[in-house]
């Protein structure tokens, strides 16, 4: 499954568009991580635990989007966009969406 955030996949030809696909995940912060982050709020600097948490969450959102695209019979997703929103205190929603397409065999 090829993914890009422009309208095409470089070096390949798009045969058919199958419509929009999306994937999302809502993640809450871990208590232990929260305590560590509290210390970091005193000293400043990167909150590595949160960076990892959000990376994992985005990967999962992309996986769900890809699963939906596979279900439609696509072999690539183009024009992918990411979006983040905080639904409640302490939780974030990560959302990925794009257009599922069928590519010519290359």
């Amino acid at each position: 499954m090829l993914i890009s955030n422009i309208e095409l996949i470089p070096g390949r030809k798009i045969l058919r568009h199958l419509g929009m696909v999306q994937g999302n995940t809502v993640r809450a912060k871990h208590v232990g991580r929260d305590i560590l982050a509290g210390f970091k709020n005193i000293f400043g600097g990167e909150l590595t635990a949160y960076t990892e948490l959000l990376t994992e969450a985005r990967e999962e959102a992309v996986e769900r989007m890809v699963a939906q695209a596979e279900h439609l019979g696509a072999n690539a997703v183009v024009n992918v966009r990411f979006s983040t929103s905080s639904v409640t205190a302490g939780a974030a929603e990560l959302f990925a969406y794009g257009t599922a397409v069928v590519l010519e065999d290359g």
């Binding site: 955030n5 470089p10 070096g11 005193i42 990167e46």
Partner: peptide, 19 residues
Amino acid sequence: GDWQQGPLVNGNVVISLDY
């Protein structure tokens, strides 16, 4: 140019203010 591949690349960081 002749581009063969175009994978999605990304980077993120969470950073905090000090007290």
